[in-house]
């Protein structure tokens, strides 16, 4: 039994499907865990209780923090950490990417290549120290065409080389806005391989969100100290 997890999915009011519809579809496709990360402003998810009653699927409500600058990001991430078991950050501008990698409250930085710039070495080192995973949204692979897609792939390849070098964990996701955008784990692994992932790396990337959740569930008295 595999424990593949979809790490970055958007549901109503931001996407077009309720969490339970997404969970049913994800279960059919072969996932055992789904993390719903709506952006800030769309936190009031439609009927989350219905999603938790679906057997065979674990549905977690997370949040994808959007911020204009570092200061706003830090305050939003800190307040999100208290309320949600999974905190992702909408990557894009260099300032936001850097702030997310330097913030220990952040679990995941999604699509940092959105701002058309690759990650820097200082950023990846900070991500390794603060245990921030880098999320690769594979929907541009399907959505974009020609030169824009090849430029996106180039950026993703550069990011991938860096995170391999510094051993920063990766997460792959379909970035689904509706149940029709969800893909089977095998499809995601295949798309990731086209971009440059190895098979075992892509599989690890699908398993990593569960590890993040396990770690966040433990009770931490202070950095590095776990209460048993």
């Amino acid at each position: 039994m595999n424990f593949f997890c979809e790490g970055n999915v958007h549901s109503l009011p931001e996407g077009s499907d309720s969490p339970s519809r997404l969970a049913l579809e994800a279960r059919c496709l072969g996932f055992s865990c789904l993390i719903i990360c709506n952006h800030t402003g769309f936190e009031k998810v439609f009927l989350p209780e219905a999603a938790s009653s679906i057997q065979g699927m674990e549905v977690i409500m997370g949040i994808e923090v959007m911020a204009e600058n570092a200061k706003v990001l830090h305050s939003r991430a800190r307040s999100a950490r208290a309320r949600y078991p999974f905190v992702a950050v909408h990557g894009g501008t260099e300032e936001v990417n850097r702030a997310a990698c330097e913030d220990p409250s952040v679990d995941l930085l999604v699509h940092p290549e959105d701002g058309r710039k690759a990650l820097g070495i200082a950023l990846v080192k900070a991500a390794q120290e603060n245990d921030v995973a880098i999320g690769f949204d594979l929907s541009p692979m399907v959505r974009l065409r020609r030169t824009s897609r090849s430029r996106w792939m180039e950026l993703v390849r550069r990011n991938l080389t860096l995170i391999r070098k510094f051993e920063v964990p990766a997460v792959i996701t379909s970035g689904a806005m509706s149940h029709l955008d969800l893909r089977t784990p095998r499809d995601l692994i295949a798309l990731a391989e086209v971009v440059g992932f190895e098979t075992f790396e892509a599989k690890e990337a699908l398993l990593h969100p569960l590890r993040i959740l396990d770690k966040n569930r433990k009770s931490w008295a202070s950095p590095g100290v776990e209460i048993l």
Partner: peptide, 28 residues
Amino acid sequence: GRRARVEGLVLESQPENRINKRVKRWKL
């Protein structure tokens, strides 16, 4: 009676210096 599991890396410093506040900005 409580038990706590601690990463050794967090304790790595001279004992007399560790008593001063040493906040490591990382989670394990």
